[in-house]
Each structure stands twice: as structure tokens, then as C-alpha cells.
Amino acid sequence: MSSLAGLLSPLEGRPHVIIVLGKGGVGKTSTSILIASELKTQGKTLLVSFDQAKHILRYLNLRRSMEIVEIDDNLSACQLDIEASARELTSRYSDLVAELFPSLTVLNLEDVTKVLKYAPGVEEEVFLRWLADIYENREYSYVVIDTPPTGISLRTLVLPRLYLIWLDKLINIRERIVSLRYVISKTLGREVKVSDPALNKLYELKEVYSKVKDALSSASRTSYVIVTNPEPLPMFELREILNFLDSELMMKPKLLVMNKVLPRDVATKLGTYDEQARAIEEFKSIQYRSVMIPYANNPSSRLEDIVKLREFIVVVRG
């Protein structure tokens, strides 16, 4: 029996965040559960699913989203509901918009908060905020994150960098505004306001996003696990994620997992043997720690089923 936690070590920092990436349907949730169920023996572990498929609710028998539920002594789990979070986040601002309503009517902004949850980028923003909170939470030694499919996850991981570019530009303009306001007031003998709430808010946001950006690019705070299947599209996404981690975050994955590997006779019967063999060959050629997990005869639907998969893990590169 092989230990995924062993292959992921060393896991420094508190909390150390393990981000599980991959194409939709490859088995990210099962892999996340497997990793979390091993890590709980080493320290308090939280398993968080950002995946909108919400499989974790069924696997771990959770009643509803947005609640941290204790599964056992050292393992807790939570399914996030991105739409509910977006709704909550945007409704928090509706009072403010209502207060500024007379002003904003001129710009036709009355309905902004009603439709804002559907605006491009809001989903990634919610994901990012949770991520920022997770890195700040010292209650857990390990946090395993089951991510949504590749596109949204990668956009979110690069978002802090984009935010910092925006914030730097806004800070430059705002600093000039504040300094001009100061000089004009001082020259004309008016009352001088030194502190500027907008500038303070910008500094505060810059600090938050700098911390997340640094944590995402730090091997001592974050480990990336990529899950794939022995099929062309999941393998294509594996390469895309590897390129992304290398070029955007200057990071390497800690572990690659090839899930749902069919037994030779079954693959031959289904006519997928050659395709699977090519994918496995390519997978084996990648120079990172990697494991293969065979296809389960009975699709896993409970925590116990998933934990049993550990017995069948084959280490390709240790």
C-alpha cells in the first residue's frame, strides 16, 4: 500500500494547502478525499471542495454546502457554494448602492447588485476570497482543495497577479490625487485631510492579494497535485496545467495522479488499449512524482469505497 501523503512530503507551513487540479470528471474529488484521509493522521485537516459538481456532499454524507462539518477527530470537510457566496458577497453591497442610489441613477446603476453575481469574474473572485481566508486560518495543519474544472481554477490562481497590477495603477493615481489635494488645501489655507479612506482601502487590498500571490507561488505553503485519466483530453489538460504552473506561478507539481486506469483485458475489449497505452507512456515520461490508480469496478460513492482505493495505488515515480 502506497502513501500519497508520503509522496507529498515535506509539507511545511500552517496551514499547508494542497490544491488538486485537473479536467472535470477525472476523479479530483476522490483523489482529494484520499489525500485528506491520509493527512489527518499527521495533523488537523480540512477538505474543501470548490467544485460545483458537489460530489463531496454525497461521498462524505454532508447535509448542505457552506458548513464546515467534522467527519472525525482530525478531519473536517466543507462544500462551498460559489453561487450562494457570490449572492452573499454582492448583497452585502446592495445597501451601500441603495444609499448612493440618487447619485447612481444618473449612471443607470440601480440594478447593478441584482445582476452582479452573473458578471464575468465574480466566480473567480469568490474562489479567491475563500483561498485568502484559508491561507489565514491557522486552525488546520493541512487544507486539501478540490478545485472546479481547469479553466476557472487556473484563472483564479493567476488573479492575484492581475489584481496587484490594477491596484498598483489605482494606488499611483490615488496617491497623486491625495498629494495634490494636500498641496492645494495647504496653499489656500484650507483644512487639510491627511488620511484618505480610498487609499487606505487600496493598501489593505494590496496586502491581502500580495499574501495570496506569494503563498500560491511558495512550495512551503502550497503543493499542487494534478489528476488525469489515460485519455487524450485529460492528458492535454495535464500538459496545459504543467505549462501554467511553470510559466505563471514558477511552481512544479508535487504529485501527478493517473486515475481510472483500465485493466488490459477490459481496455482491449473496449478498443481503448492502444490509446491508454500511449497516455500511460507519456505519463511515465513526465519527470515528477507520480502514481496510477486502477479503475474501480464499482464506482465509488462513499468515503469507505474511496479509502479502499489506496490499496491499489501503483507508484510510477517516487
Binding site: 458577497l89 451601500l96 448602492v97 444609499e99 448612493l100 469574474g121 465574480v122 489584481y163
Partner: peptide, 16 residues
């Protein structure tokens, strides 16, 4: 980002 806009809006009441 629209959320960033809303966050800053609370500090910009006078300007609005």
C-alpha cells in the same frame, strides 16, 4: 473587477 469597484465605492461616497 466589479467586486473591487464595490469595495472602493464605500470609501468614495463624497466623490460619487
Amino acid at each position: 473587477s466589479p467586486i473591487l469597484s464595490l469595495e472602493l465605492l464605500s470609501t468614495l461616497k463624497d466623490e460619487v
